[in-house]
């Protein structure tokens, strides 16, 4: 693999410049730790964001493809109107299939609220007809009008009122995930800037000597930038590894599709965490470079 020329120059020239700065100091650990911790958090924010988006999309997709017709009619009219509706649906473009839920299925639906011994037959419960939408789907408004003509007690519920908040929630969760990642990146940049400033201040004598012998600001800055970039890269690599192990150890998604059990990466999503260490290095590079030139302008 060949490095971009700018990065290669930073590495080659920086290696030489790096020697002029004393090697140790608390800022070294602070930078590595910050980059590691922030990358670790970033991986979970990323996993959370992706999982939220996936789950909401799944819900939204499932609801989007089905609709329910609720029929309320006198008992002697119930079966006639049900048949009329099923007949109507069979000739409606955009409807893939339709069927009336059995009493057993209705009892099963109501069981969580009324218990298993509910006498469905004796209660005035509306008949439910499940409609599966084709692709492209049906014209909702047209279907409502035809239903009103054929079966006045029928109401079409296409789940729009459920689907809209879910779609909005999905968008907001993704946005929050992205915002969290941006905040983590900004926090890392701020911490690294502070560490770089502390390091520059602690090495004021080194800077004085370098200037006396004719070092340009870019040479001095390079020594610090290279060091902080490599520290951030190392810390972020450790943080990413720890984060990936943490995510991998979470329970697999089960049939229930619970939110927590779905937390993690799927498919190409597993590649995203590997982008974080280079990204952390870029953040550290930019933050240190800016801090270094600013500080060098301030120093006499």
């Amino acid at each position: 693999m060949t490095l971009p020329p700018a990065l290669r120059r930073l590495m080659d020239l920086g290696k030489q410049a790096d020697r002029v700065v004393p090697p140790s100091g608390h800022t070294a650990w602070l930078t590595t730790f910050t980059a590691g911790a922030m990358t670790f958090l970033c991986i979970f924010a990323l996993a959370l964001s992706l999982a939220s988006g996936r789950l909401a999309s799944r819900w939204s997709d499932a609801l989007a493809r089905t609709a329910t017709i609720r029929l309320a009619a006198p008992p002697d009219q119930m079966q006639v109107q049900t048949d009329a509706i099923l007949s109507l649906l069979s000739t409606t473009p955009g409807v893939e299939s339709a069927r009336a839920l059995t009493d057993e299925e209705a009892r099963h639906l109501l069981e969580p609220w009324f218990g298993p011994d509910l006498p469905v037959e004796a209660l005035p419960i509306p008949r439910l007809i499940e409609v599966v939408e084709a692709d492209p789907g049906y014209d909702g408004e047209g279907l409502r009008q035809r239903l009103a003509a054929e079966a006045p007690g029928a109401v079409l519920d296409d789940h729009t009122r459920w689907r809209r908040p879910l779609a909005e929630a999905a968008g907001r969760l993704r946005l929050l995930g992205g915002l969290s990642i941006l905040l983590i990146g900004a926090t890392m940049a701020a911490m690294i800037t502070l560490a770089a400033n502390a390091s520059l201040a602690a090495n004021a004598q080194v800077i004085r000597v370098l200037r006396l012998v004719g070092a340009r600001d870019s040479y001095i800055a390079r020594a610090f930038v290279r060091r902080f970039t490599l520290r951030a890269l190392t810390g972020a690599a450790i943080g990413a590894l720890a984060g990936l192990i943490g995510v991998a150890l979470l329970p697999d998604a089960d049939a229930a599709g619970g939110f927590l059990t779905g937390l993690g990466f799927t498919g190409a999503g597993w590649l995203l965490p590997f982008l974080l260490p280079p990204l952390a290095a870029v953040v550290a590079f930019a933050a240190t470079r800016r801090a270094a030139f600013q500080k060098l302008r301030e120093l006499p």
Partner: peptide
Amino acid sequence: LDHLPLAANVQLPLTV
């Protein structure tokens, strides 16, 4: 630069 040996210090103007 106290962490570098004398030779490296003397050579510093060339290095920079």
